[in-house]
């Protein structure tokens, strides 16, 4: 949608001089040709306005309303809902859990994904690169709930994992309904995003740079630290932000693998809106989640860009 909209004016702009230069072209043809081009951007623009900004504005307005049991939402202009979040340590703990689970999952994705992405770029032949990439994104072709259900089968008290370690004489481990299980589930969802993002950036790093560093006396680890990582920084940033945002907003994984006593932000928002019918507070929680995510990712972006800008422009 976006690409067709942006290429529209450019294409007609290039052909317009030809049209005006040829004598038989009727006057005003240029204008008539451009009009549909601009018109083509309208659906995307309207869609963005209606489908993204509209609901956001509406939700924000809701978050300022008052909840009265029995009456549900009562029109008001109050910050009570936000005040409640900051007054109630339960919700702050929920946010805390969401933050550290997301940070840990993202970090694990980075640590596990980087070697895979690097291997794909530098070691795999072209033929295998395509196949392996397909294999890596394959889990994404499956529904989130289905995949999570599979993890429940694997991580359950009598699940596959415990059966396997039981067979070699290790006593069963409680995994299901623990934060560990949630992190495992999240990493399995997010890893493909990290790998694909890193792979495309590492692809752009000239292999000769690594050879040059080596010939100057750098070990593999030093080449990684001094050459590859700094040059892969934009990809690391993009992959990290992507994974972090996705896990901050994760829903199915914490609900199904985390269990009833494990709380992250997105399920809590849902719980407020759909179960407690407290739309104003649910909306306020959603905005707190969005604000925190936005501040963290923007800060990371600014910090990294500051280092990166010097040579990237």
């Amino acid at each position: 949608m976006t690409s067709s909209a942006s290429s529209g004016p450019a294409t007609s702009g290039a052909t317009a001089p030809v049209a005006t230069a040829s004598p038989p072209a009727p006057r005003g043809r240029e204008g008539r040709r451009l009009a549909p081009a601009y018109g083509l951007t309208a659906p995307a623009t309207i869609f963005v306005l209606l489908a993204l900004i509209g609901p956001l504005a509406l939700m924000f307005r809701y978050s300022l309303n008052r909840f009265v049991p029995g009456q549900m939402m009562v029109e008001a202009l109050t910050l009570d809902n936000y005040a409640r979040f900051f007054a109630d340590s339960f919700y702050q703990e929920v946010l805390g859990t969401t933050l550290w689970i997301s940070a840990l999952s993202t970090l694990l994705c980075l640590v596990a994904g980087f070697p895979v992405a690097y291997f794909l770029v530098r070691q795999a032949s072209d033929k295998w690169k395509g196949r392996l990439l397909l294999l890596i994104v394959l889990p994404l072709l499956m529904g989130n709930a289905v995949r999570t259900a599979a993890w429940m089968v694997i991580l359950g008290d009598k699940g596959l994992f415990n059966a396997v370690i039981g067979a070699i004489g290790i006593s069963p481990v409680k995994l299901m309904y623990t934060p560990t299980a949630v992190v495992i589930g999240l990493v399995s969802v997010l890893l493909p995003f990290m790998i694909v993002t890193l792979q495309s950036v590492i692809e752009g790093i000239d292999a000769n740079l690594e050879s040059a560093a080596q010939s100057l006396g750098a070990s593999h680890l030093t080449v990684l630290r001094r050459v590859v990582l700094p040059l892969a920084l934009p990809g690391i940033l993009a992959g990290t932000m992507l994974c972090f945002i996705l896990s901050m907003n994760a829903y199915a994984t914490p609900v199904l693998i985390g269990g009833p006593s494990f709380h992250m932000m997105a399920p809590t928002v849902y719980q407020q809106v759909a179960k407690a019918m407290n739309w104003p507070f649910g909306a306020a929680l959603a905005f707190v989640l969005m604000a925190v995510t936005l501040v963290l990712t923007t800060t990371a972006n600014v910090l990294v860009q500051r280092r990166y800008r010097r040579w990237s422009e």
Binding site: S211, S215, S219
Partner: peptide
């Protein structure tokens, strides 16, 4: 390995560290 050979290598595309 290359880092133990003490050789200077000049690449066709120079391979200067861009950062």
């Amino acid at each position: 390995p290359p880092n133990k050979r003490n050789m200077g290598f000049g690449f066709q595309n120079y391979a200067l560290f861009p950062h």
